[in-house]
Design a protein around this nucleic acid. Structure first.
Length: 154
DNA sequence: GTGGGGAGCTATG
DNA sequence: CATAGCTCCCCAC
């Protein structure tokens, strides 16, 4: 905690708050819902730039940034596969589970998504259910806004 | 189209 | 061990 800092940025889904681990220069938290920590605030960084670029339409602005998030092998694999989904397209929970090596673990993908600490950069919003939009931690409106921004209508 | 039930896999208490 | 979760599929109405 002591070697982290925080920032905010405006994205299509609204104001996002994030935290960066300083030594590793990696994103450890990003959320549309603010939290109460006492990290020092920074106003400029490559992370701010990436969010701004994304908002301006460079949908691949996050490819260069590294993310750190604890979890199991399964969740790590799910997050990896998720980042491979190109902006502008979506994949179902089931398809993602299959690519992660567990064809019947669609629901487990949902659980992992629900506990994702790094919204937007780990693109849970690109994972939809087989019969519709599926859920989203910050509400379906934000999920739809993000997809619309990426050129997907749902 | 609706609704119920169960399979299946992980995460958390 | 039990239960919940951003699911899926199938089978009846």
């Amino acid at each position: 905690m002591s070697d982290q800092w925080r920032g905010t940025a405006l994205t299509p889904g609204g104001q996002i708050h994030f935290a960066v681990n300083d030594p590793s220069n990696s994103l450890v938290w990003a959320s549309y819902q603010d939290r109460d920590d006492n990290l020092k605030l920074r106003k400029k960084s490559t992370f701010h730039d990436a969010f701004a670029e994304y908002a301006e339409g460079n949908l691949s602005a996050f490819t260069g940034i590294t993310v750190e998030q604890d979890g199991t092998e399964f969740s790590a694999s799910v997050y990896d596969r998720m980042r491979e989904i190109p902006p502008g397209s979506v994949e179902t929970y089931g398809q993602l589970a299959a690519r992660a090596g567990f064809p019947r673990a669609a629901r487990a993908v949902g659980t992992v998504c629900a506990r994702n600490q790094v919204a937007l950069v780990i693109p849970c919003h690109r994972v939809v259910s087989s019969n519709g939009l599926g859920g989203y931690g910050y509400g379906p409106e934000i999920k739809l806004e993000l997809l619309a921004h990426e050129g997907v209508d749902y």
